[in-house]
Nucleic acid binder design. Structure first.
Lengths: 111, 111
DNA sequence: CATTGTTCTATCGGTAACCGAGAGAACGAC
DNA sequence: GTCGTTCTCTCGGTTACCGATAGAACAATG
């Protein structure tokens, strides 16, 4: 009921997750924190959004998983980008730039 | 089944429609053509997406409608931005810039 | 006149992503 | 032993978008 509407940039979550994993393997909770932190809280996603994305990425072979210990000595499932994931990231980034540019062109440009 | 996925910039359609109407009153079909043309075909929406948006905008008082004749002598329902619609456009544009910048920061910036 | 193409409005059911709410396990700290 | 924090995961609901579809009105063609 609050004004927040994440629908605006829907579909970017997958790309952002792939991007964070491009920095190195990370667990779900850490990915979420990373996105929120890097965006200065502009972007945030509930875990009810995150885990379905991670499961989908794995089922599509874009990431692999392994259980390990975090710095805080907790069990966590680490997600690691596969070569396919890297390619997917590049493709989604290119597509994002293309659409973003088109939107900006309309929004900023002369009629 | 084709590769096209508009989900990437979901929620922008409303903003784009408001923006096109900021150029002057226009009918549904023309709005659609305008968006597609201005974006060099990068952005396109089916009419099954467009009309629900227009109906919503009207019900929220962001546009008014009036029947008139087009240059081609066809009956068409022209949509005109209200002052509330103008304000909404500004707000959505600001929000878009904020989110777009956050996404770009993560995608382009250093980890 | 009949037929076809173009312009234009509109609806419906399905799909898929996101979200809030919630359950639960494991570890550290007090 | 209780609490807070970290971390995984599921479920049902909502909602935007889309493909398919229907159809009216006018122009142009034969």
């Amino acid at each position: 009921m609050t004004e927040s509407r994440n629908d605006f940039i829907r579909g970017t979550l997958e790309m952002l997750v792939l991007r964070v994993l491009d920095f190195g393997p990370m667990h779900g909770w850490g990915i979420s924190e990373r996105i929120q932190s890097l965006s200065s809280d502009a972007l945030s996603f509930s875990q009810g959004s995150l885990y379905p994305v991670l499961a989908r990425l794995q089922s599509e072979g874009l990431v692999t998983t392994e259980w390990a210990r975090t710095e805080n000595n907790r069990r966590a499932k680490y997600y690691r980008l596969t070569p396919q994931g890297e390619r997917k990231l590049l493709a989604e980034h290119a597509n994002w730039r293309r659409l973003r540019t088109a939107v900006d062109w309309i929004m900023e440009g002369a009629g």
